[in-house]
Design a protein around this nucleic acid. Structure first.
Lengths: 207, 207
DNA sequence: ACGGGTCAGCGACAAATGTCACAATGGTCG
DNA sequence: CGACCATTGTGACATTTGTCGCTGACCCGT
């Protein structure tokens, strides 16, 4: 289900502009939109689905940062574009995802003439700061079981479902830990009746 | 030693404006400029010295995020101001520090008429994103000995000295670990000839 | 129903970090 | 000097996380 641009609180003139220069792109689940080192020539506005933003180290290990969903844009793209720097994160479609790619050049110009665009950009910065701080909290203050539990809740919330479809290995990769640790802690969560585990699928026992 | 505003690459008109409405503030070492929950009514521009930005959890545990130095401003302040939200971080003077407080109201207006201010604001966002990602890297990918070593190098670089004046307890607090662990790992670093430890002071053996 | 591959479970152990108790050291101040 | 306090050092132990080897369960295609 596509969300069209109209629903994003832009003024009509801007919607027109976006439709004129923006390129619609569809990503299937698991597709990679961006990887570290890639030049960023356009900024994405997400219409439907969700993107998982990850940080990678040189050795290829990675850690989850945050999700982007409908109406979001990637603040990293904004900073990369304006500074003409390559991406420093990886973006993967968590679900089938549709987005519009807007060329960099418009960014500045629109900021100066469309108040709603300016608001949009600043809100993007602000939200992503909050998201990053939340990622820091998770890494700095929470133990692995809590981190897994929260990740599951977020993933479930994205789809508004009680099921999360993921293997233990995938979760381990997102949290930069090992498959065995995930298995162990999921068992523990199961013992606490917070989840039920199935093959390729985890059921959340929310409330 | 004060740095005056002129050296920050603003156009003369803007410097005038800043001097007119900005309030100079001096912080002695260790003074707290901001704490989580505090309303943010002005944004700081740092003239000299440095601020240590920390994240706290509910229990009062904290973890280092990044340093701000001459010419920097706090992106958190920018986002907090524009969103009218309280601060989510703690800012402490790492050295004796001088800064100018600029009232929020000017932020938007200056953006629209002073190109150099706009550049300044966007660079601030960009730098702080990079800093936060570095903090994430540290938390996600590095072991405690590496984290300590890097923190020491940063602290030394701030003052352009080979000495870092800090107790093991203080370092432990900044890294959200315990004093004993810091002592242990400093011993290890000393064994690798990367540092020499003294009372209240650590000497870095940088080549 | 059989076979191969992916996924999950499990026990044993290693490494990193956290915690506790206490000793030793150095600096300050009366 | 002697008393006191902050700082540092150290050993023993607990907890958390990481790693290895192996087993069994499930799924799918033939």
């Amino acid at each position: 289900m596509t969300t069209n641009i109209q629903s994003l609180h832009f003024e009509p003139k801007l919607v027109e502009e976006i439709e004129k220069v923006g390129v619609l792109k569809k990503l299937e689940m698991g597709a990679e939109l961006m990887r570290p080192g890639m030049p960023v020539r356009s900024i994405p506005i997400i219409l439907s689905g969700s993107l998982r933003i990850m940080r990678q180290d040189e050795g290829g290990k990675e850690t989850f940062l945050y999700f982007l969903t409908k109406g979001d844009t990637c603040a990293m793209s904004l900073t990369c574009c304006t500074a003409n720097r390559p991406s420093s994160v990886r973006a993967v479609a968590e679900d089938p995802t549709e987005l519009i790619l807007v060329p960099v050049e418009k960014l500045d110009y629109w900021m100066s003439i469309f108040p709603s665009w300016k608001t949009f950009v600043f809100q993007a910065y602000q939200r992503r700061f909050e998201d990053l701080l939340e990622a820091v909290d998770s890494l700095a203050f929470q133990k692995m079981d809590e981190r897994i539990w929260r990740l599951l809740k977020k993933k479930a919330a994205l789809q508004e479902k009680r099921y999360v479809y993921a293997t233990h290995q995938e979760l381990a990769d997102e949290l930069n830990t090992s498959r065995e640790v995930v298995t162990r802690l999921l068992k523990k969560l199961e013992g606490m009746d917070k989840i039920k585990t199935h093959r390729n699928r985890i059921e959340l026992m929310l409330k």
